[in-house]
């Protein structure tokens, strides 16, 4: 039987991979995917705690996180499309109007 600590460590590693991706990738869509990975890592933590504690609200929160992730995906991709229409790029280094 896998112990709770193992699940938590996997989740911490996944979270860090996602966070590192957000920091060094330059394509807005891939950054968004890295954020999804972070949310999934958190979901794993929540489910693991919920099942080991025998308390259900963690799983309910996971359900809501999935809802919110879907909503964020819709809005985020719409923003990406809007920006692509104007600038023909989603590379965040090319977006430099607001600096200073």
């Amino acid at each position: 039987m896998t112990s709770l600590a193992n699940y938590l460590i996997i989740s911490a590693i996944l979270f860090s991979i996602g966070a590192a991706g957000v920091l060094f990738r330059r394509n807005a869509i891939i950054i968004f995917m890295c954020i999804e990975l972070m949310l999934n890592a958190v979901n794993l933590t929540l489910i693991a705690f919920s099942q080991f504690l025998g308390e259900q609200s963690g799983q309910v929160l996971v359900f809501f996180v999935m809802t919110v992730a879907a909503a964020e995906a819709a809005v985020g991709l719409a923003i990406v499309i809007a920006i692509y229409r104007n600038k023909e790029t989603v590379h965040i280094d090319d977006l430099n109007l607001l600096k200073g």
């Binding site: 972070m38 949310l39 965040i92």
Partner: peptide, 19 residues
Amino acid sequence: ESSNEASLKYFLLGSFATG
């Protein structure tokens, strides 16, 4: 374009913070 960029920047950093 500035409005687009503001929105993208806010979105990416905001959802990062949500994580």
